[in-house]
Nucleic acid binder design. Structure first.
Lengths: 213, 213, 213, 213
DNA sequence: GTCTAACCGAGACGGTACGTCCTGTCTTAGT
DNA sequence: ACTAAGACAGGACGTACCGTCTCGGTTAGAC
């Protein structure tokens, strides 16, 4: 390390360092509360209490309540991979099955702030970064492979089609009030990610009576 | 004083009647504030101020803040009809074009409460009643006609397919941050409501660079 | 009142008027807490709790904690009168006896803020207005009568002499830790407000062992 | 290692010894802040900042904030002596003139905690030890000499009379807002420490317009 | 000359009070 | 009986300080 070490860096090391476990505890508590009671009921004091942390430790890390929430819902490093199974149907099924088994806590938390994306740009960014972008990116790869293989026609609107599953999963959660399951993932695959002629036999379950909106 | 007169009614008629214009002003103010600043920023005092009304007049009509919001977002009797143009593509195009020209204020207001549907049953009901159900009902009719006509295979998941447009419209609004337009409606129709073989020429706009999520 | 009535005044009458009992409750609670636990331990939340009042009602009336305290200790409308008994000794005895029987709560409260008078002009003003000025004013009258009568020499430093009792009462409270009583008042009168030659027989109590500082 | 050596002492000597200059810096900073801004505004962090010291160094030396203040105001070993000039007037004048030239910083600091003496025994002790007792002790000697000389009558309330100057000096500081000066000391001597018949000519300054309370 | 234990500044930690703002209720005066 | 205005108790906001703790680094005395 250079002897001309930056004074700011040296200074940054002075004093007791922040406990990184608190970051985790706060993020976890925020996601729990968001998922359990919604954004409107979320208070800083309850986050602090749930995390077993003082309010000052929150405000040392984030400037306000909104920033805490944004960090919590944006922390989504895991993204399902898009393995090449050889067919569109296989790829999509693998991918969406993994997705619906995804951490439902994070899914609910980010759904709880969806409405705020309308009025606050930062929520929009967090929503995209935590929810739609990682989901869509994988689907896009799968769909492009399918177009190359000829399973889908060249004119297929890949961008639109790849946005359907996250939109349906969100709507399913908001409208039906329960977490999308593997059966729902399969239903999506059957309808939208199966090349024509490969449609399976009609679902024995009467779709009109399903809980779909 | 007639003894035949119902005491309850007489009592209800006694004194100065409520000014019905205040109801409208409150509902309008609530929808504006919801659309502009989101549910989290919505306060009773700001509703009252925007409507030019005293807080007591709000609490005389509704028991609490949630009820005000629910009434405001539920006031949406208008539902686009589903005229029979003779083809799935024509029906869907007519229907969705009408839908995207829908009152955007109401659309935004109801989107703003979508996240609360997760944690509060009443918001879920209002969201369904105001957003998804009226939209889906029309589409269902259209799709069932298309199945009868043979434009869609018998195994088509009508319930799932009819839920795609509202889900995409909501996601488009939340993710792209702007109102869906007629072009977006056409894109949906092209991809999902055109019988195989009737797909139009590929869209000159590169879909990868569109603002779709 | 003028017909050109000030709009501000008219406006001041709109809405629910403030409950004057709350003012009293707050002042009483503040004086109690000041006297019981001192200024350093005095918190707004404890004042509010003791008075059975919301914090907002405090901040509606006063801008901050200091102002609440200042109002409480400045509320001292009662001032002992200075009746003319015909002699300096009689006047002073009557006056000081009344004084030591004075509301000890208020006496303690104002003593508790004495130190703040050093650093904050407002506390100095409140201290003067609530403690020294009303006490001294009466003594001054008594002393001036005594000079006229010839009971005190013409060169008597009336201002200095009239400031002795409040100073001694304060010091007695702070140093001895108990309220000055009638015996203490009599001791002051004997020493400072009895014309030469009228001194009573030496006090049987050994003054060296008294609790005087 | 000698077995005779006290383990506690050895332990006490181990490691780096405390820097005694920090003690001084802290005491000085505390007295300054007390005098400048009062006890209520005194915070440990401001003491540390003013002294250029870390908070831990304070809490290594004293258990809490109160203890710091008590040590600071108790560090006052100097006490004016009471030289025998041969007359009450001369003794008192010498003594009180010295007193008013006293370190005004310490005088203010200890005055600032006077109010806390009411509610906290430790402050009462410190106040007595630092303010009234050393002052009164000297005056008592002077007054007892005067009684022996016959300058004061045998019935004189020495305890009461000796408590007058510190009480007046404190009151003068708190009420008038400025430090007592030599003129004030002389005024006290003229009124209370001059044998009858030895009163000087009336003060040319109109006492009614003086700043005395 | 190490070794080592207590020192030092800095600052994070849980907790409490500040003064502000909003909720849902209430109490005025006026329509 | 309605209206606007606004006071009321209660509670969350974001800030500042308390007394404790933990970090990297310093400094005397013991070995």
């Amino acid at each position: 390390m250079s002897v001309h070490e930056d004074a700011g860096e040296r200074r940054a090391r002075a004093g007791r360092p922040r406990d990184p476990r608190l970051d985790e505890a706060v993020v976890a508590a925020t996601l729990q509360l968001l998922a359990e009671e919604g954004y409107a009921q979320l208070t800083v004091e309850r986050i602090a209490a749930r995390a077993g942390v003082g309010k000052a430790s929150l405000y040392r890390r984030w400037p306000d309540r909104v920033s805490i929430v944004l960090e919590a819902v944006s922390r989504n490093p895991e993204r399902p991979s898009a393995p090449d199974t050889g067919s569109l149907r296989g790829d999509a099924l693998t991918y969406l099955r993994t997705l619906v088994c995804y951490r439902s806590l994070h899914f609910d938390a980010i759904s709880a702030i969806s409405g705020e994306a309308l009025s606050d740009e930062r929520f929009g960014d967090a929503f995209r970064a935590g929810m739609t972008e990682p989901t869509i990116a994988g689907l896009r790869v799968i769909l492009e492979r399918a177009v190359e293989r000829g399973e889908l026609p060249a004119g297929t609107d890949v961008a639109l089609l790849s946005s359907v599953p996250p939109a349906l999963l969100l709507a399913q959660r908001l409208v039906a009030g329960r977490h999308p399951d593997e059966a729902f993932a399969e239903r999506i695959v059957d309808q939208f990610f199966s090349p024509a002629g490969e449609l399976p036999a009609p679902d024995p379950v009467d779709p009109d009576e399903s809980e779909l909106p």
